[in-house]
Design a protein around this nucleic acid. Structure first.
Lengths: 217, 217
DNA sequence: CTCTAAATATACTCGTCGGTAAATTAGGAT
DNA sequence: ATCCTAATTTACCGACGAGTATATTTAGAG
């Protein structure tokens, strides 16, 4: 009894870390599972589309039942949102990675395009491209718009930088960013993971096209 | 009996034209209404998305009930397909219009881009871009694929022609067509009909970008 | 004036699916 | 051993929406 008591009060210090370690493990576990749910959803959405995928489908692909899915995620909408966010994060990383580069604007833009293509061919790519405001509540829709806008602004500022340092011909930065993003986003519509063409090759061709243009030099 | 028989056989000549005129009128009427159904559907799909639009919605926008809609169209899927086809037809027209032109490949391509942008900003544009195989039966999906492929081939052959006549720098025609179509299709995602920018202006900027490229000359 | 066929409406079926309430199990802490 | 909490399941609800069976109206044909 006394021994137990002692173990109970003193150990608070000693077992504190152990406790936290184990709680931490549990949290990590939960996060890993949550990620699995999101990734499975992304894959399913990409294969069959958002509306043609039921939560029962996703659950059964995880060998689990629907309420389990709800244990990790608020609702279907949030699932889509998370997929979306994951996709956008990949692209944002690509843009941020070029933030402190000393290369010319055009070179940095090319690097961003390569990462963009990589991201768009992932399972999250489809979600990112297809996540339409129409399927999201006003709140989520606003968040999505904000994230998309960040990407857009990132592209535009790279273009501006390129124009400023002379590596890019003066142009309408807005339309240029739209055309670029459009060509890249559209990859999600035609790309199949078993495609012969790797994302990096696609990116290379796109960079060449956008840099040199169609007209012979 | 005999009289009726006679009236039935002889009048075929006299009332034939009248009959056909009126039947013709009825057919035209039916077609006009059917078109109205399809256009209303296209607008609704564009505004709220395919899955978020019920046939009751479409019917009530036409001040009519659901079975009436079914009187003009097989089912929801076909409605989407018709919208899709209407959109693609606009683009195909643009391509065919350049078939017999004597201009250079690059000039003809530019003309096609302009028409393409026009089409994509229409109500049918959205449907064309969003009509995913996922929402269509295998049969319809095949048809859609075939139509899309026609557009793709049209673009590619224009590019080839341009390369052949020296107006376009030798390039990967497949990737170039994909990039072009992507940039154009993506317009449907961001364009709002109340946009300041007219389709023709967008097209102009795109043409300039794709022709000259980003790199200064 | 009647007959017929097309056009439209009423009122329903039925499956699907998002979401949940209430039990049950597992595993770690004491 | 016991207790507590997180994880998971079973069994359900309610809504929505595609599609239809069946009347009813309308209008042209004879």
């Amino acid at each position: 009894m006394a021994g137990r008591q002692a173990r109970k009060s003193i150990p608070q210090r000693a077992s504190g870390p152990a406790l936290w370690a184990s709680v931490g493990a549990r949290v990590r576990d939960r996060e890993r599972k949550r990620d699995a749910v999101i990734m499975t959803a992304a894959r399913a959405f990409r294969e069959r589309g958002y509306h043609n995928t039921s939560l029962d489908d996703i659950a059964s692909e995880l060998n689990v039942t629907k309420p389990t899915v709800y244990h990790y995620v608020e609702n279907k909408e949030q699932l889509l949102f998370e997929c979306f966010r994951a996709g956008l994060a990949l692209i944002m990383n690509g843009i941020e990675a070029q933030q402190e580069s000393t290369a010319t604007g055009r070179e940095r833009l090319a690097a961003v395009i390569a990462r963009y293509a990589e991201a768009i061919t992932s399972d999250f790519g489809w979600c990112m491209v297809q996540a339409e405001n129409q399927d999201l509540s006003p709140t989520m829709s606003r968040k999505v718009k904000a994230l998309k806008s960040e990407i857009d602004q990132g592209l535009r500022s790279l273009i501006r930088a390129g124009v400023a340092d002379g590596s890019i011909r003066p142009c309408d930065e807005k339309m240029t960013a739209f055309a670029l993003a459009g060509a890249l986003n559209w990859i999600a519509h035609w790309y199949r993971s078993d495609d012969q063409l790797a994302a990096s090759e696609i990116a290379q061709r796109f960079i060449e096209l956008f840099e040199l243009g169609l007209q012979p030099r």
